[in-house]
Design a protein around this nucleic acid. Sequence first.
DNA 1: CATAAAAAAGATAAAGATGTCCTGTTTCTG
DNA 2: CAGAAACAGGACATCTTTATCTTTTTTATG
Lengths: 157, 157
Amino acid sequence: MFSQTVEYALRAVVQLAYKSPEPCTTEQIAEATMVPKAYLSKVLQGLSRAGIVNSQRGIRGGMSLSKSPEELTILEVVNSVDPIQRIQQCPLGLKSHGGNLCPLHRRMDDSLASVEKTFAATTLAEILAEPTSSAPLCEKPTQNPFIKLLGPQTQPD
Amino acid sequence: MFSQTVEYALRAVVQLAYKSPEPCTTEQIAEATMVPKAYLSKVLQGLSRAGIVNSQRGIRGGMSLSKSPEELTILEVVNSVDPIQRIQQCPLGLKSHGGNLCPLHRRMDDSLASVEKTFAATTLAEILAEPTSSAPLCEKPTQNPFIKLLGPQTQPD
DNA sequence: CATAAAAAAGATAAAGATGTCCTGTTTCTG
DNA sequence: CAGAAACAGGACATCTTTATCTTTTTTATG
C-alpha cells in the first residue's frame, strides 16, 4: 500500500535526523538504510526539490534536513515523494455526487484521512526518541544516538 | 494508495450487491460501473477464483455474489484482488528487530491495521443501505433500489 | 587553479499495473 | 443438435515504478 519510494524516503530522513543538522552523503545514507544508492539519489532529489532536505555538492557536501526533526512530520516526507491522494470527488464523475461521496468512497476516503492524520501527528523526533528495543535502522538498540538525549539509562540487556 | 484494480473490484461487487442474488453479465457491470469491459473481465476472474463471486457461462449466465451482501465485507473484496500487506517484520531485515517493529514501521503498520479494521467492519449491505443523497453508482438518489428495503420514504427533493 | 568529491541529470532497462483484442470453451435454449 | 451468449485465457500494447549506469555540473580545498 505504501510504495517503495515512500519507504526509502522515510528511511533516508530517519538517517538524516539521527545526524541532524550534519549532512550525510547519499552513499552513507544508502549504506545505513540498505537502499540502492542510485535509486536513493533520485528519491533524495525529489526531497530536495520539495524543500525537505538541502543538498550541497562538492567536497564536504551531502544531504541534510532543512528543518529540525522536531518540526518535520512523516506526512511531509510522504507527500513530497508520493502524495496521499484523498478522494475529493466521485471517481465515477457522477454529477449528482460531486464532493458528496457515496458510502463506499466515503469509507475509502476516511481511511486515507486516518493515515494522513497519523502521519501528520508524527515527527521525526518522536520516531527517534521513542523508547524501544528496536531503534530505526539500528541492529543494536544501544546504537541509537538519541538515547543520550533521554539522559543516563540503565542498559537494557 | 488504493489501486485501480481495487477501485474497480469494489464498484463491481456493489453493482452485484444491488442485483443480488441475480447475476449480471460483465458487460452490464461494466456499463453500470464505468469500468473498461475487458479489464473488468480480468478483475472479475480474480474475484471468481477467490470465491467472492460465482461465474456462470452461456446464455442467462453472468456473475453473481457468492454470499449475501450482509455477509460480504469490503476487506474480503480488497484482499481478493490486491491484499493489504501488513508489515510483519522489519523491512530492512534487521535480525534484532524481528517481529518487533521500530517506531517508524510501527506507525506505518498501525495505519494499515486501521484501514484493515475499517474495511473488515463494513459490509456491502451497509454500503447500499446507508441513507444518503449519493447512492453508489447511481446518478439520482432515488435510483437506489435498496431504498425499498428501508420501508416507505418521503421522497427527498 | 587543479583536483577530487559530491549531487544532478540523462539514458536505459526490467518488472508490474493497466488496458485491449482475439480466440477458445462452456452452456443455455430452441 | 445447432447456434448464440457468456466467461476464460492468451497475446500484446502502454504506462508507471523501480533500478542501474554514465556523464555533467558544482564546489570545497590544497
